[in-house]
């Protein structure tokens, strides 16, 4: 029993160190990619197109719906306590600081996390990775670094985009309940918006982007030989990304409130 526990702990520690090394290697190659504008630059553009641009529509739909729901719930609930003026504060906190980065991360996990893990896993099985190595292309530099940068950049842009559409969705509901001018609505929002709220939202988007991309890349590269490993890599990428993103969210939120 103890022996098995020890082996398991050793394996876990080994995997942690390996994944840490993988992460550092991806970061290093990403810096080199930006500095040298290597061949992988085209892959970066394609990744931004897939993860960022192609996710704009679903992101807008989710953001508008969430913004509308928060306004509908908040306006009735807060009115019961005579705190209707807190509506704008709640919108900023919930959309900009909490749900914006979190839901954007979920969208990116569902679309790009699975795609990256299964695509890379398929490439391992088809020996395409070895083919890259054989012609002198470092797969971390050519495949991982552009995807890492693409997902992180897309996360940041999508987060800002989500915030805008979330607040617009809320504005649409306001027009149905208690119409106010567009300028007044955004003036009220701006009055309660603090730089820290924006900063925390962007920090979370950055951290979540790093987590989703590195986990998905790691799972994809972890495939060894069999095609049956490919869907498993996709599932694990999603599961691990969700878990780590939520954990990171808890940690960052705790730091903000306790710290």
């Amino acid at each position: 029993m103890l022996d098995r526990l020890g082996r398991s702990a050793r394996r876990g520690a080994g995997e942690f160190l390996y994944s840490l090394g993988f992460f550092l290697s991806v970061v290093k190659e990403s810096v080199l990619l930006v500095r040298r504008r290597q061949v992988g630059f085209r892959v970066l553009v394609m990744q931004i197109l897939f993860t960022g641009v192609e996710a704009l529509r679903i992101s807008a739909v989710v953001a508008i719906a969430i913004g509308a729901a928060i306004n509908l719930i908040g306006s009735s609930l807060l009115a019961e306590f005579g705190q209707s003026r807190l509506m704008y504060t709640m919108l900023i906190i919930v959309i900009t600081r909490e749900l914006g980065p979190l839901l954007t991360a979920f969208i990116v996990i569902a679309r790009s996390g699975t795609a990256i893990a299964t695509e890379l896993g398929g490439m391992v099985v088809a020996h395409e990775m070895e083919a890259y190595v054989s012609v002198g292309v470092n797969p971390i530099s050519y495949l991982a670094a552009p995807r890492f940068l693409g997902v992180v950049i897309s996360m940041l842009v999508l987060d800002v985009y989500f915030n805008l559409f979330g607040l617009l969705g809320s504005f649409a509901v306001v027009q149905l309940i208690k119409p106010i001018a567009f300028e007044e609505y955004f003036r009220n929002l701006a009055a309660v918006l603090r730089p820290g709220d924006l900063g925390m939202g962007l920090l979370k988007a950055l951290v979540f982007g790093v987590i989703v991309s590195v986990v998905s890349l790691y799972r994809g590269f972890s495939v060894e030989r069999s095609s049956t490993e490919v869907p498993v890599a996709g599932i694990r990428a999603v599961g691990s990304s969700f878990m780590l993103v939520i954990l990171a969210d808890v940690v960052l939120t705790t730091i903000q409130y306790v710290g």
Binding site: G122, M123, A126, H127, E128, E130, A131, S134
Partner: peptide, 12 residues
């Protein structure tokens, strides 16, 4: 050096 893979291993 170069390597010719058994299944081609072209980049799909």
């Amino acid at each position: 050096s170069a390597f010719v893979f058994q299944d081609g291993a072209l980049w799909a």
